[in-house]
Design a protein around this nucleic acid. Structure first.
Lengths: 122, 122
DNA sequence: GCTTGACCTGGAGTGCACTCCAGGTGGGAG
DNA sequence: CTCCCACCTGGAGTGCACTCCAGGTCAAGC
């Protein structure tokens, strides 16, 4: 029976929705550090790694550029004394997400009005 | 006194928020057709052109790929009998925008919870 | 009349975020 | 024992949507 607290690459792909190539890429650029390896050199992920990838996925899918995720990753690695900075970074991002949603809602109104217009002339 | 129903490239940039390079690029790939020229070969846009660019901006800013804007542009050019197809295309896009907003709202919750967590351990 | 600057063209270059590939290793199922 | 398959590496390639550049034209304000 497999150790449920260790994930193979395939399991992480399944779990996070990232492709294996993306995960390797993230490790290469330093978004992911200190990933365990088995004797054969294959990656073995902890639940913490999977959780971290989940957060990265959330940030990526809300439009955070990699450069900023990297800054965040460095804050996390730097230790507890950076918690305030992390909060600041996330709050800034949260504001951008809010603006993004507002913009989308606004534009959706325009699209809907266009649809109504087309319906009226059909 | 300038004719208010004719826009220079600079005015269109001001009006639409697109860069002049993007506008030329859109003309090159066929998102923009039959743009008037003055004697010197410079572009002169009509209010209709500006309106069309405004719609393109909305579609672009809600994530529609150029290939699909191109399909839409072709429908518009093909004439009145494509109105139903245009509605279908816009409705499909509208559903994607809706999903996008929902995803963003959901992820924003996660970001906010992360912020709360950091605040609690600070 | 001259300068300035907005505009033109074709084509090359950029930035981002992956994605793919060749060539190779190691371990478990049959 | 052999096959297969998941995995490995470094590095090249991709797709999208612009963005920039060199070299040139024209029109209007001073």
């Amino acid at each position: 029976m497999a150790d449920v607290s260790v994930y193979t690459p395939a399991e992480v792909v399944e779990e996070t929705g990232f492709s294996i190539d993306t995960i390797r890429y993230y490790e290469k650029i330093g978004l992911l550090v200190d990933i365990d390896r088995n004797a054969a050199g294959q990656r073995r992920f902890t639940p913490e790694d999977v959780g971290w990838l989940g957060l990265l996925k959330c940030l990526r899918d809300t439009g955070m550029p990699i450069a900023e995720m990297l800054r965040f990753a460095e804050l996390v690695r730097a230790g507890e004394h950076t918690v305030a900075d992390r909060v600041a970074l996330l709050e800034e991002h949260d504001r951008r997400v809010k603006a993004q949603i507002a913009g989308l809602v606004e534009r959706q109104r325009y699209i809907k009005s266009k649809i109504s217009y087309y319906r009226s002339v059909r």
